[in-house]
C-alpha cells in the first residue's frame, strides 16, 4: 500500500519537527542566559581595562604581558562548540583559523582547544594541539576559566619562543549575526595613543591623573591588575562564543523545523492524492465489473 508508507513518512517528519522545535526553544533560552552573563561581566571588564590604561599611560609601567616579544611561535586558542547541529558556527571558526595560518606561514602555530570541535578544527588545519578543554560546564565557572587562563599563561611563560597569544572566537553581534574572528590576546593591547589624545584634550584631568598614588607600589598594583584583566578578557571571549553558538543553533533548528513542516505539507498532498487515486480506482473497478455483468 502506498498510502501506508506515506503515512509512516509523515509521522517521522512530524516527530523530527517536534524535536527541532524543542531544541530551538532550549537554545533560545541558553542564548539569552549567555548574553545576560556576558553583559553582567562587561562592567568588570571595562573597569579593569580603564585601570590598566591609567596605570600604563601615566606611570609607563611594564609587565611581561604588556611587552611585545620576539619569537617564531604563536599560541592559538581556538574556541568552538562541544556539540554539532549549529549551522556554520564551527565552520566559520575553522575558516578563520585556516586564513590565520596562511597569513603567518613563517611562524610555528600551536593550539589550545576549547570545545571538542576545536580539536577537529586544529587537526584539519594541521596544527599541533598542546591542550584541550572539552569537559567544561554549560556557562563556564570561574574556576574553569582560571584553569584555561593558567594553561595559556604557563605555556606562554615557559617558552620564550612564543611571540604572542591569539584567540580564534566568534564575536556576538546580535541574535542574527555573529562574526568569527582572530583577536590578539597577549601581549595585551592598551590603546595608549587614543588614551593620550583624550588626556591632552582634558588638561585638567591630566593634572589630576598625575596625583594618583599607589600602595604599596606601582609595580605590585600592576602585577595584580594584569591577571584580572586577562581573566575577564578570556571570560568575555568564551561567553561571546557561547552566545554565538546558541544563536547559531537557534537559526539552524528554526530552518530544520521550517523544512520539516514544508516536507510534511508536501507529504500530506501526496498522501491525499494517493488516497484519492485508490478510491477512484476502486470505483472504476466496481463500475467496470457491474457493466461487464449486465
Amino acid at each position: 500500500m502506498q498510502t501506508k508508507t506515506i503515512k509512516q513518512k509523515m509521522r517521522s517528519v512530524q516527530n523530527i519537527g517536534k524535536i527541532t522545535k524543542a531544541m530551538e526553544m532550549i537554545s533560545v533560552s541558553k542564548m539569552k542566559k549567555s548574553v545576560q552573563k556576558r553583559t553582567a561581566s562587561q562592567s568588570f571588564a571595562d573597569r579593569s581595562f580603564e585601570l590598566l590604561e591609567n596605570l600604563h599611560v601615566h606611570k609607563n609601567l611594564t609587565h611581561p604581558y604588556l611587552e611585545t616579544r620576539k619569537g617564531n611561535k604563536i599560541l592559538l586558542v581556538i574556541i568552538a562548540s562541544n556539540k554539532g547541529l549549529c549551522g556554520g558556527y564551527n565552520m566559520n571558526v575553522s575558516k578563520q583559523v585556516t586564513q590565520f595560518k596562511n597569513e603567518h606561514t613563517n611562524f610555528t602555530i600551536d593550539a589550545i582547544a576549547v570545545g571538542k570541535q576545536s580539536e577537529k578544527i586544529a587537526r584539519r588545519n594541521d596544527i599541533n594541539v598542546i591542550a584541550s578543554f572539552n569537559e567544561l560546564s554549560d556557562y563556564y565557572t570561574s574556576g574553569e576559566v582560571r584553569s584555561v587562563l593558567k594553561t595559556i599563561t604557563d605555556t606562554y611563560d615557559n617558552d620564550d619562543n612564543y611571540q604572542s597569544v591569539v584567540v580564534a572566537y566568534t564575536q556576538f553581534v546580535s541574535s542574527l549575526s555573529f562574526d568569527a574572528t582572530v583577536t590578539p590576546f597577549i601581549p595585551l593591547k592598551v590603546d595608549v595613543a587614543q588614551k593620550l589624545a583624550h588626556i591632552e584634550a582634558d588638561t585638567n584631568s591630566k593634572r589630576k591623573f598625575a596625583l594618583y598614588s599607589f600602595e604599596p607600589d606601582e609595580q605590585s598594583v600592576l602585577n595584580a591588575a594584569v591577571p584580572a584583566v586577562l581573566m575577564t578578557v578570556i571570560y568575555q571571549l568564551l561567553l561571546e562564543s557561547l552566545a554565538s553558538e546558541h544563536s547559531a543553533r537557534v537559526m539552524a533548528m528554526r530552518n530544520a523545523s521550517d523544512n520539516a513542516s514544508d516536507m510534511y505539507d508536501e507529504l500530506k498532498l501526496n498522501f491525499n492524492r494517493a488516497r484519492q487515486a485508490a478510491i477512484t480506482q476502486e470505483i472504476s473497478e466496481i463500475v467496470g465489473g457491474s457493466s461487464a455483468v449486465s
Partner: peptide, 17 residues
C-alpha cells in the same frame, strides 16, 4: 595588605590591592 583604610569624598586618587 597593610591594614584598614577609610575613603572619604575628595580622597587622593589611589590604587591599592
Amino acid at each position: 595588605a597593610n591594614g584598614e583604610i577609610t575613603i572619604l569624598p575628595d580622597h587622593v586618587p589611589l590604587v591599592v590591592p
